[in-house]
Design a binder for these strands. Structure first.
Lengths: 208, 208
DNA sequence: ACGTGTGAATTATTTCACAGCT
DNA sequence: AGCTGTGAAATAATTCACACGT
């Protein structure tokens, strides 16, 4: 309807990265153009939903032609702020934190892990070239390194305290792997990764 | 409204595990009773939503009193099939797969990892007492061990093939860590764990 | 007096269907 | 002829508000 910043529903925002991923796949297969019909087929959704989602931001398609993949990708990446990179930190360097630090996927997508924190500094002070610092130095490092995202991989019991501290230090987004639902101020964004909740929802359907 | 099995919205099912978790917390703090008002406050949702959610399954509360925590917990656990344990397997024993196998939280909640599969059997044939087998023996092990859930931790490019194979072997639920959206038959349940999509949605809000 | 359970009202989201551009 | 963008219609989810049981 119009491309000025309004309040776009979260549910729409959450679908955009899926479009980006699929368009990237198509691009890497040298496809240059796609219709909402075909994209909907690939994503198991309806063409109408895709067109309606895009319509919140502008007019990206050409009637009779569909969407130019390069152009649409660029627009969506711009909307989602994917063209800049985001400095991040990991808090909690247990097994999960180490797996997160070792995972290259974050860097590939522009989420740069600049430092990790733990209560106790382990013997090896570095994992995959990321230095491990004491949580007590968190505030200082977050400010100096201009860190905007905190990835939380501490036990549930410690998570709220860590998150409060991250936010107080200036972090604007939390990716929370702890199995709990944190309390977060409105100006900070939080996403929870909680495989146990997913499995428990899944169990409902397993016995039918 | 009534407690016979109807089609309950997914969105309602997905909230139930959160109620279970919070009720467990309250129970461990020796609280015996709670109102929808208080529970809503803890979960940052409305009392009306909680009552409406429960009303899909029956009448669990007492007017003027609220809910008995033990009773409500038992009812919710029964609805979600959390009182049985579920045999599971992990496919893909890279760093992520190893972290999943090492994580004790699945076992604690009744999701028992019975075996892991990989294309290449590593030198150490066991992780946290879980044996690693060849993917080519998957069908046999899944049937013999009565495995109902497959946890997929292979690269995205291999995931659809692995998932097809799991389903063909009789698995009824997929917990997919690969960054892709698999195609799944209607009688199988699938949940995706995709931190990159979460971060990309989050990026939209970071720059406002 | 308190707090559930639930129809009714409201708000959000999806789908329809078609005018209009290429 | 094909396919977008979008109001209107349909469907889904949330919230209101209150009768009723303890």
């Amino acid at each position: 309807m119009n491309n000025t910043e309004q309040d776009i529903p979260d549910i729409v925002i959450n679908r955009l990265p899926l479009y980006v991923r699929t368009l990237n796949d198509l691009k890497s297969m040298n496809q240059t153009t796609i219709s909402s019909e075909h994209l909907g087929h690939l994503l198991q959704t309806t063409p109408a939903q895709i067109r309606k989602d895009f319509s919140h931001f502008g007019k990206f398609g050409k009637q009779g032609k569909g969407y130019n993949i390069d152009y649409l990708l660029e627009e969506l990446r711009e909307i989602l702020n994917l063209n800049k990179s985001w400095n991040s930190c990991v808090v909690g360097v247990g097994k999960l934190g180490q797996a997160v630090i070792n995972y290259q996927g974050f860097k590939d997508e522009g989420y740069l892990i600049k430092v990790a924190f733990d209560i106790s500094i382990p013997k090896t002070k570095t994992i995959s070239d990321i230095e491990i610092r004491s949580i007590s130095d968190m505030n200082q490092y977050i400010k100096t390194l201009d860190i905007k995202i905190g990835i939380v991989t501490v036990p549930a019991i410690d998570a709220q305290g860590v998150i409060d501290r991250l936010i107080q230090s200036g972090v604007k987004g939390i990716l929370n792997y702890a199995p709990m639902k944190p309390i977060i101020p409105k100006n900070v964004s939080c996403m929870n990764i909680d495989p146990i909740l997913s499995l428990q929802s899944m169990s409902y359907y397993l016995d039918k």
